[in-house]
């Protein structure tokens, strides 16, 4: 599979890297390191950033994405080539909260302004490397708690629920699970099981059907993203339990809008991904232009979305 990755990286590098030719000397250059552009969420985020570049017109954007969610090498290579090109700022959504710390340190040492957004780098890894870096991003744990609390309120104390987790090892998956656990505790819910479906619709469908067999009395599902919630809702329909099991998701993707409307999905969480990269770039440019460096955690907006928000 190494070879597949190599080919993939080659294809990506040649297609996604923006035309390098002739940017004006006075315009700052921002290197944007994205996660998988095969993921609708990040693709929209990139489009938001491009729209921002066109609207502002006072910087040049160079974006690199990955082929898959876990393709760490492509991101490291991208940061290294941005260092070589001496860009003014690097805005990065890390695919791995530890592996990206050393290349980011090299960028900072080279005098480049670095902004970490979407997924926070590991605090301990940062400390060990001697990197001080602010994080611009949503509170995944808080967001998950919003969705979890909506479910708890609907079902009441003692309700039997399960959690469908994201990729083990992914920081946002871990944070969302913690948020769900907060709701389980606060709402005194009865957590029967918690398993990963790797963010995937088909796997969530299979997993939830099997959970339902093991625990026929499940009343609520906390899914760590909407793609998995889609699979769960279809499994509920197939089991003839439509309306008897409440589901909450995360991300507010277009495909769940009909489910919200039909009340097959109780709630989801919007973290305004389209604006996230553009927002981080704006913050980076302020620092490049002499503003104060960012510190700590700059939280971005999150919002609970229910059927009331869908027309």
């Amino acid at each position: 599979m190494k070879f597949a990755k190599f080919i993939a990286a080659g294809i990506l590098a040649s297609t996604i890297l923006m035309p390098v030719s002739g940017y004006a000397a006075d315009k700052p250059v921002v290197g944007l390191v994205m996660k998988s552009l095969a993921n609708e969420f990040f693709k929209n985020m990139l489009e938001g950033a491009k729209a921002d570049e066109a609207k502002r017109g006072d910087y040049t954007l160079k974006a690199v994405g990955m082929q898959s969610e876990t393709d760490v090498e492509t991101q490291i290579n991208a940061i290294e080539s941005f260092i070589t090109e001496k860009v003014d700022a690097i805005v990065v959504a890390p695919s791995d909260s530890r592996a990206l710390v050393p290349p980011i340190k090299r960028a900072i040492d080279a005098g480049i302004t670095v902004i970490n957004f979407d997924v926070a780098l590991d605090e301990k890894a940062k400390e060990e490397a001697g990197v001080k870096l602010a994080f611009v991003g949503p509170d995944n744990r808080g967001g998950a708690k919003l969705a979890g609390d909506a479910l708890a309120k609907k079902l009441g104390e003692g309700a039997k629920v399960v959690i469908i987790e994201g990729n083990p090892g992914a920081d946002n998956a871990a944070q969302r699970k913690l948020g769900f656990m907060d709701s389980v505790e606060a709402g005194k819910l009865d957590l029967l099981d918690s398993r990963t479906a790797h963010w995937e619709t088909e796997e969530a469908n299979t997993l939830f059907s099997n959970m339902l067999t093991a625990h026929p009395d499940i009343q609520g599902v906390l899914a760590a993203n909407d793609s998995m919630a889609l699979g769960v809702v279809k499994a509920i329909d197939a089991a003839g339990k439509t309306g008897k099991i409440e589901v909450v998701g995360f991300d507010n993707i277009p495909a769940v809008q009909p489910l919200l409307k039909e009340k097959k999905l109780l709630a989801t969480v919007d973290q305004f991904g389209q604006l996230m990269a553009a927002d981080a770039i704006d913050k980076a440019l302020k620092v490049v232009k002499g503003g104060a460096p960012l510190e700590g955690w700059v939280k971005t907006d999150i919002k609970l979305v229910t059927s009331d928000d869908v027309k």
Binding site: N39, S68, E202
Partner: peptide
């Protein structure tokens, strides 16, 4: 069959 089972079609399925 995938589409009938899950009611979606996405370019990232089947990995």
């Amino acid at each position: 069959v995938y589409m009938a089972r899950l009611n979606i079609a996405s370019p990232i399925i089947g990995i």
